[in-house]
């Protein structure tokens, strides 16, 4: 990799002080994420995968170590609006239409009215929601709401997309479809994506790089580079030998990291 990494963490630690003593949410995390990579973070609860993503987004502040996003500190990167963040719940405002929700970041960031309208239309078609702009969130299914929230994160030109278990609350059929769409979207936009998940098949299917994490203290156990082709992958790639091999490797990594101890 000759290009400078988009996200670079070295010796990163985050310790929460609680009534029961310190909790090491992250300990000595080293990681580089290059431009255009799709990186999944997988591990059991308490392994710090969400915390790490929140550190990148400057929603948490590390207590030790170094973290840069686009060569800036995470907080500078946040102020420069370098990333879009997708949460586990769609979190659409019930008093705004779908288009109004997608427009929200654009209004805050001061885009012109015409630009706002053009962008809303563009990203709604990217996530396959053309014609739903005037609907209110409650008129849409859960999967469609989550697509709208992805459109909201894509509406402004952030190079980085951070996704915290975005499909965790959806059923598997919807999840498969959204995974496929996400891959298409990623290859069309060439964004750098950080993706937190609980699901091994999801991680393997989507990623160019899989970061296996283990708990207490939260740390990186293993980084697996995917040998699957980059770009849109057909859903049935999940039946291929190569896919199963990588999935097995992830499972072994989770086991060695004591993820199954409880």
């Amino acid at each position: 990799m000759t290009e400078k990494p988009v996200i670079e963490a070295s010796n990163l630690s985050l310790t929460f002080q609680t009534g029961d003593g310190p909790v090491h949410a992250l300990k000595d995390v080293d990681l580089e994420i290059g431009k255009g990579e799709f990186v999944s973070f997988i591990g059991p609860s308490g392994c710090g995968k969400t915390t790490f993503l929140r550190c990148i987004a400057a929603l948490e502040t590390p207590t030790a170590g170094r973290l840069t996003v686009n060569g800036m500190s995470p907080d500078e990167a946040r102020k420069a609006r370098s990333y879009g963040y997708v949460f586990q719940a769609a979190g659409l405002y019930p008093w705004r239409t779908i288009a109004g929700n997608v427009r929200l970041p654009l209004e805050i960031m001061g885009y012109s009215k015409e630009d706002q309208a053009a962008r809303v239309e563009k990203v709604l078609s990217l996530v396959d929601l053309e014609g739903f702009g005037k609907k209110f969130p409650w008129q849409l299914s859960g999967g469609m709401q989550q697509r709208a929230s992805i459109a909201r994160a894509l509406a402004f030109d952030a190079e980085i997309l951070l996704m915290d278990e975005p499909f965790g609350a959806l059923d598997e059929i919807v999840r498969d479809k959204l995974n496929e769409e996400l891959l298409k979207l990623w290859s069309a936009t060439n964004k750098t994506i950080g993706f937190v998940t609980h699901s091994i098949p999801e991680a393997v299917y989507l990623s160019t790089k899989i970061v296996v994490m283990s708990p207490r203290p939260g740390r990186i156990h293993e980084v697996i580079e995917s040998t699957l082709p980059k770009g849109p992958r057909p859903l049935d790639i999940r039946d291929s030998e190569e896919f199963l091999k990588i999935a097995h490797q992830v499972r072994e990594g989770l086991r060695a990291g004591h993820a199954y101890d409880e």
């Binding site: 987004a57 929603l59 946040r78 102020k79 609006r81 990333y83 879009g84 963040y85 949460f87 586990q88 719940a89 979190g91 929200l104 970041p105 805050i108 960031m109």
Partner: peptide, 15 residues
């Protein structure tokens, strides 16, 4: 979550 979302947009207190 909703407050964090606005924080990621670097929204002001007024917004």
């Amino acid at each position: 979550m909703q407050l964090d979302l606005l924080k990621t947009y670097n929204a002001s207190k007024g917004e």
